[in-house]
Amino acid sequence: MHLRKAADRTVWFDGYVRTYLERDLQDLSAVAALPDFRRLMRAACFRLGQLVNQTELGCDIALPQPTVHRYLNLLETSYLLVRLPAYAVNRTKRLIKSPKLYWGDTGVVLHLSEGGEPSGAHFENLVLHDLLAWRSARIERAELFYWRTTIGEEVDFVIEAAGRLLPIEVKASGRPRLGDVRHLRTFRAEYGRRARAGLLLHTGKALEWIAPDVLAVPWWRVL
């Protein structure tokens, strides 16, 4: 029964991707080389949650950077791709720093990449879309970013709302550890009173203050 369900999902996603490529995409912009576009989609799936480097991506799949740029824009315009900007105090820098790449549907990512079991990046992608849905439902404006330093310290998500910052780390683990929150605490030290207590979202059941300034929460209790 389980195998039948997996087979049914494969048929459904095959039809979804085919319809997108052969009908919907043509309404947005003619893509003559559909095999190239499919290859770009698959390569982008393997970079889930990573910084976007269009030149490197193009080299990997033998496409020129302008073509990669155009295809990524088409994916974003058609809501299949999400590019998450970097947080910076200087708002202009937010526009020029490399975004992180996510997908509009975690199931599509798994299907295109033939990745088997979901990974931490897929869980992160799932949480991102719950956050985007929350943001869209708000009346007050809220922005969503990631944060990364030049030495590689990183916080998965940062919510900016009402002049305050909420740093969020996502761990595909049912047993969060103190070591999981070190970058959340670095972020809070960097931004001081503007930063709220950090959130560590995990797959377990325990709700606890894992550090004096970081609350570990099952993701399904928050989103």
Rank of each mutant, 00 (worst) to 15 (best):
136 S>R: 14
159 I>D: 08
131 L>G: 01
165 L>C: 03
120 G>V: 03
127 V>S: 01
144 L>E: 04
131 L>C: 06
156 D>T: 08
158 V>P: 00
123 F>H: 08
162 A>I: 04
118 P>Y: 12
136 S>A: 15
145 F>S: 08
148 R>I: 12
123 F>Q: 05
120 G>W: 07
169 E>F: 01
146 Y>D: 10
163 G>V: 05
138 R>W: 02
136 S>I: 08
141 R>V: 00
161 A>P: 04
148 R>P: 11
166 L>H: 00
124 E>V: 05
146 Y>H: 14
146 Y>E: 11
117 E>P: 02
152 G>T: 14
124 E>I: 07
126 L>S: 01
150 T>S: 15
132 L>N: 07
135 R>D: 03
147 W>C: 10
153 E>S: 14
165 L>N: 03
170 V>F: 00
132 L>V: 13
135 R>L: 09
152 G>Y: 15
136 S>M: 11
167 P>C: 06
169 E>I: 00
152 G>D: 15
164 R>E: 12
136 S>Y: 14
123 F>M: 09
154 E>G: 08
119 S>V: 01
169 E>H: 03
131 L>Q: 06
138 R>L: 04
141 R>P: 00
125 N>P: 05
154 E>S: 11
128 L>F: 11
131 L>S: 03
123 F>G: 02
126 L>T: 01
139 I>M: 10
124 E>C: 01
139 I>L: 10
166 L>G: 02
135 R>V: 07
166 L>W: 03
155 V>S: 11
131 L>Y: 06
153 E>R: 15
